[in-house]
Amino acid sequence: SAGTGGHEPAPGMAETNLFGAVTAEKILDWIRDLGPDATLTPVIDTNQTWAVDQHDPPEAMREQVLTRDRNCVFPHCSVDSRRCDLDHITAYDDTGPPGQTSPDRLAPLCRRHHLAKTHGRWSYVRNKDGTYTWTNQYRRTWLVTTHGTIELPTN
Rank of each mutant, 00 (worst) to 15 (best):
R83H: 11
I89V: 14
E63V: 04
P58Q: 14
P103R: 06
M61K: 02
D87I: 12
R70P: 03
A60F: 14
V73G: 00
L109E: 10
V73D: 00
P108T: 05
T95I: 07
L86D: 00
C84Q: 06
P98C: 02
R112N: 11
L66V: 05
T101W: 00
R105A: 13
Q64V: 09
L66Y: 10
D104M: 07
E59M: 10
I89K: 09
D80G: 02
F74I: 01
T67L: 15
I89Q: 05
M61Q: 02
D104E: 15
D94A: 10
C77K: 10
Y92V: 01
R105E: 08
T95K: 12
D69Q: 04
R105F: 00
D69G: 00
C110G: 07
Y92S: 03
P75R: 13
C77E: 09
T67M: 13
D69C: 04
R112Q: 15
R62A: 14
C110L: 12
L66C: 05
E63G: 06
L106E: 07
R68W: 02
D80W: 08
D104N: 11
R62C: 03
C110A: 10
R70M: 08
L66R: 14
L109N: 13
L109I: 10
P103T: 01
R111I: 09
L66A: 03
S81L: 06
V79Q: 12
L109Y: 15
F74P: 02
D104Q: 14
P98E: 03
T90A: 09
R83I: 01
T67A: 15
E63F: 09
C77D: 09
T101H: 01
Q64S: 15
H88W: 00
R70A: 14
D85L: 04
T90C: 05
P58N: 15
S78W: 10
R111C: 06
Q100P: 08
P98G: 04
D87F: 11
P108A: 04
R70L: 13
L109Q: 13
P103L: 06
A107H: 03
R111L: 11
D87R: 11
T95Y: 09
Y92K: 02
R70Y: 04
Y92I: 03
R82M: 06
D80H: 11
Q64A: 15
T67Q: 12
A107P: 04
G96H: 10
R83A: 08
N71F: 13
I89W: 06
Q100F: 01
P75K: 14
C77A: 13
R70T: 10
P75T: 13
D87K: 07
T67G: 13
D87Y: 08
P97Q: 15
Q100V: 09
P75F: 12
C77S: 11
G99Y: 00
V65C: 04
C72G: 01
F74M: 11
D80F: 08
G96I: 08
D85W: 03
G99M: 04
L86N: 03
S81C: 07
Q100M: 12
R68L: 10
Q64G: 07
